[in-house]
């Protein structure tokens, strides 16, 4: 029996995380302690450093400074695939699918990282390999069903409309069996009704799969309904943090958002 502390250990602990690109301070002294099963919203205007935060957490870019502890393990500077296997999965703001592979195979690629692979078994098509592939297929289909993508299973990923591609991104992130899910503007390009439905789906996933989620949104209103906690970034700094109600009335937040254009960012970045 373990005698854990009474208050649950944080799932994620980030301290003083900083990153500059050619003089632009994309993120500065970012700090976060995240308890399991919270849904944290991260909002902020264009170029505030939100995606950079995800890139740092997932090993896509390495930090100039700071430390990332996940599940008690120091993952600062680890490679993206190691971080995925440790239990952090993400979606991409500018959608990264294996475009010419089928929707089903896209999910399979993400799913298979959780199981062992032996080349000899695959080449000899041993019963164990065949059974494993069968199970993989079923799990992939179940995931597609969960995100209502099953009818598109055989289609090439890039033939899906944008909204469905974003859902496929979520399916692939879930396929890696994460503890922490990072969603980068999953509702971008959706109309308010679609965005609303997606937010409810996200809240439901959190409950059903016992996930911890960080949700980036450009638009303040969208996250307010489902997040219990919100951080606001501006020019790489956390300018406010708290409950959605507190955030909505924060003068610094209002000032940061004043005059910013709520248009879709169309520049392509990781």
């Amino acid at each position: 029996m373990s005698t854990e502390a009474l208050s649950p250990a944080p799932l994620l602990h980030v301290s003083q995380l900083s990153k500059a690109f050619r003089g632009v301070q994309a993120l500065h002294d970012y700090t976060l302690t995240l308890q399991p099963r919270t849904l944290l919203g991260v909002i902020g205007p264009n170029g505030a450093g939100k995606t950079t935060l995800f890139n740092l957490l997932t090993g896509v870019v390495s930090p100039d400074r700071g430390r990332i502890l996940f599940n008690g393990q120091d993952i600062t500077g680890a490679s993206p695939d190691a971080i995925v296997r440790a239990g952090i999965a993400r979606t991409f703001q500018n959608i990264r699918l294996f475009r010419r592979m089928s929707v089903l195979d896209n999910v399979k690629v993400a799913l298979q990282s959780t199981q062992p692979f032996r080349l000899a078994e695959a080449v000899l098509r041993l019963p164990r390999f065949v059974a494993q592939e069968q199970a993989l297929e079923e799990r992939a289909k179940a995931l597609l069903a969960m995100l209502e993508l099953e009818p598109y299973a055989a289609m090439p990923a890039d033939s899906l409309p944008y909204g469905l591609q974003r859902r496929l991104e979520i399916a692939m992130a879930l396929a890696t069996n994460p503890k922490l899910l990072l969603l980068d503007e999953p509702a971008a390009g959706m109309n308010p009704t679609e965005a609303n439905a997606l937010m409810h789906l996200i809240a439901r996933l959190r409950d059903e799969l016992k996930l911890t989620i960080i949700l980036i949104e450009h638009n303040m209103r969208v996250v307010m309904g489902i997040c219990e906690r919100v951080q606001v970034l501006n020019y790489g700094e956390i300018i406010a943090e708290g409950t959605p109600e507190a955030i909505q009335n924060d003068t610094r937040v209002l000032r940061a958002y004043l005059g910013t254009v709520h248009s879709e960012p169309n520049h392509a970045r990781a």
Partner: peptide, 18 residues
């Protein structure tokens, strides 16, 4: 599948555990 995924999008593959 992993090989094809790498061909299609290397970073995308890495971020799915490949």
């Amino acid at each position: 599948r992993a090989m094809i995924a790498v061909r299609e999008d290397e970073l995308g593959a890495a971020c799915r555990g490949v």
